[in-house]
Write a protein that binds this DNA or RNA. Structure first.
Length: 452
DNA sequence: TGAAATGTTGGGGCG
DNA sequence: ACGCCCCAACATTTC
C-alpha cells in the first residue's frame, strides 16, 4: 500500500488530532511531516519567540512519534509534491489553519491534488463559517456570537490512535533550522515546557483552581490564568479537550468565565477568517486617517520597559524575559502605547508578534484593534486605562512590579505605582516619559477632532 | 475587560 | 430646634 502523509502544522499533538487519527486508521504506512514554510506567511512569518517554542515542540512531537517526524524546509506545495514523488505517497491529510495566507496556500494544494488531499478541524471548537447571525452574516459583536456558539454542541475529543506503521523518509536536522536564538540567547529566562504532555499537565493543574478564575485571573502576581495560550496556539492541546475537561467537573462562575475566553479565541479566529486584512487595517475604517504619532524613542522605551511607569515596565520586561505577559497587563501596556503615547497599534502588534510565545495572528490583531477602539465589539477609544490606578487595583502590594523592576525594590508600597511622587526618588529608574494626565487629554482631543 | 467630572444625598459640626 | 456648610459616599454622565 502507498504511504499517507500527515502534514503537521499548528496541531503538534497525537490526541484529538483528526488528521493523524485518520491516517493511523487507514492501515497505510504513515509519513509525519512538518514543513518550515517561511515564504508563505510574508510579513507574518514566525517571530523569534514562536521559533523558540516551535523548536522545542517539534522535538517533543518527534519523541512521541519515536523519531519518525520528517522535517522539510521550503514552499509547502512544492515540498509536499516532491515528498509524494519520492516516497510514492498518494494521500495527504492535515488539520486546517485559518490565517488568510494559509487558506490560500492550502486551497491551492487541495485543488492540485483533488481527492488525494483531505483536511480536518483540529484547531477550533466550530468552523468560522458555521456561526452566523439570523441574516447569515458573521457576528461582529461578541455576546450574540457567544450565545449562538453555546447552542452548538462541541465535539468530543478523540483518543490517541493505536501507533501506525511509519514509512521512512529522510529528514532535515532540526538544529540546521536554527530556530533557537544564539549570541545573545535572549530566551535563557523562558520558563516554559512546550509539548503535548506538558500541555495536558498545564490543563489539569489549572482545573484545580478554575473555580477561582473570575477573581484571580486579574492579579498578575499570581498564576491565576490558565497559561494555556501557547499550547493552544501550537495545537499541543485542542480547545475541545480543554472545553470538555472543564465541563465534565466544573460549573462555577470561574469555569464559565474561562469557557468564555475560549469563546473569545473562536471569535477572533472567525474575525480574521472573514476579514483577511485584520492584521493591517482597522476594521472601523474611520480610524484609517487617525494621526498616529511617530516617535521611535518612546517606542523603544516602551519595548525595553523603560517608560518610568512601573506596571507598564514590569509587563514589558516580563514579556522580554519570559516570552509571555499576563493578560491584565497586556491591556495596560497596549492602552499606554496607543492612547498616552499616540503610537500606532500596529507597532505594538508587531512587537508582540516577535516576542510572545503564544503569538497568534487572529488573537493578536483582533485584540490590538480591540484596545485601539477600531476593532469588532471594541472598547471605545475614550476608555483609557490609568496605569497607576490599574496597578493599585490589581497589584496592591507591588509584588508583580518588584519582581520585574528590581530598581523599585525599596520603594514604599504607597508609591510603588507612582515613584515620581515619592519623597526620595528611586535610583536608576527613569522619570515617566509621558505625563499621564496630559497624554490622556491629548488622546481625547485628537479623538474629538476626528469624530467631527 | 475605565476614569474623571458632575450631580445627589445625608450625617454631623456648629452658630 | 433650626439652618447652613462641609464633605464623604454613592450615582450618573461624559469623555
Amino acid at each position: 500500500m502507498n504511504p499517507i502523509i500527515v502534514w503537521f502544522r499548528q496541531d503538534l499533538r497525537l490526541a484529538d488530532n483528526p488528521a493523524f487519527t485518520h491516517a493511523a486508521k487507514s492501515g497505510r504506512p504513515v509519513i509525519c511531516l512538518f514543513v518550515l514554510d517561511d515564504g508563505a506567511a510574508g510579513e507574518w512569518k514566525w517571530g523569534g519567540a514562536s521559533r523558540w517554542w516551535l523548536h522545542h515542540s517539534l522535538t517533543a512531537l518527534n519523541k512521541s512519534l519515536k523519531g519518525h517526524l520528517v522535517l522539510r524546509k521550503g514552499g509547502a506545495a512544492q515540498t509536499i509534491k516532491a515528498l509524494m514523488r519520492e516516497t510514492g505517497a498518494d494521500q495527504l491529510v492535515w488539520n486546517r489553519c485559518y490565517e488568510p495566507f494559509a487558506v490560500a496556500r492550502d486551497t491551492g494544494l487541495k485543488t492540485a491534488l483533488g481527492a488525494a488531499a483531505q483536511s480536518f478541524n483540529g484547531a477550533l471548537l466550530h468552523e468560522p463559517w458555521e456561526i452566523k447571525t439570523g441574516a447569515g452574516t458573521p457576528f461582529r459583536v461578541f455576546t450574540p456570537f457567544w450565545n449562538a456558539m453555546l447552542k452548538r454542541p462541541v465535539e468530543k475529543p478523540k483518543p490517541v490512535p493505536r501507533a501506525p506503521h511509519f514509512a521512512i523518509a529522510p529528514s532535515d536536522s532540526l538544529a540546521d533550522w536554527k530556530l533557537l536564538p544564539v549570541k545573545p540567547n535572549w530566551a535563557h529566562g523562558f520558563d516554559w515546557t512546550p509539548g503535548e504532555k506538558p500541555a495536558q499537565d498545564a490543563l489539569y493543574d489549572f482545573l484545580d483552581q478554575v473555580d477561582d478564575y473570575g477573581r484571580s485571573r486579574d492579579l498578575p502576581d499570581r498564576d491565576g490564568t490558565s497559561r494555556l495560550s501557547a499550547h493552544l496556539h501550537w495545537g499541543e492541546i485542542s480547545p475541545r479537550q480543554a472545553w470538555h475537561a472543564v465541563r465534565a467537573r466544573h460549573h462555577s462562575e470561574g469555569s464559565e468565565t474561562f469557557l468564555k475566553e475560549l469563546g473569545w479565541r473562536e471569535f477572533c479566529a472567525q474575525l480574521l477568517f472573514h476579514n483577511p486584512d485584520l492584521p493591517s487595517q482597522p476594521l472601523d475604517r474611520r480610524f484609517a486617517k487617525f494621526p498616529w504619532r511617530k516617535n521611535e524613542k518612546d517606542f523603544q522605551a516602551w519595548t525595553k520597559g523603560r517608560t518610568g511607569i512601573p506596571i507598564v515596565d514590569a509587563g514589558m520586561r516580563q514579556l522580554w524575559q519570559t516570552g509571555w505577559m499576563h493578560n491584565r497587563v497586556r491591556m495596560i501596556v497596549a492602552s499606554l502605547l496607543i492612547k498616552h503615547l499616540g503610537i500606532h497599534w500596529r507597532q505594538g502588534e508587531e512587537w508582540f508578534w516577535d516576542t510572545l510565545v503564544d503569538a497568534d495572528l487572529a488573537s493578536n490583531s483582533a485584540n490590538w484593534q480591540w484596545v485601539a477602539g477600531c476593532g469588532a465589539d471594541a472598547a471605545p477609544f475614550f476608555r483609557i486605562f490609568n496605569p497607576v490606578l490599574q496597578g493599585e487595583k490589581f497589584d496592591p502590594q507591588g509584588v508583580y512590579v518588584r519582581r520585574f523592576v528590581p530598581e523599585l525594590e525599596n520603594c514604599p508600597d504607597k508609591y510603588i505605582h507612582k515613584p515620581w511622587a515619592a519623597p526620595v526618588s528611586p535610583e536608576n529608574y527613569p522619570e515617566p516619559i509621558v505625563d499621564l494626565a496630559a497624554g490622556r487629554d491629548r488622546a481625547l482631543g485628537i479623538f474629538r477632532a476626528l469624530k467631527r
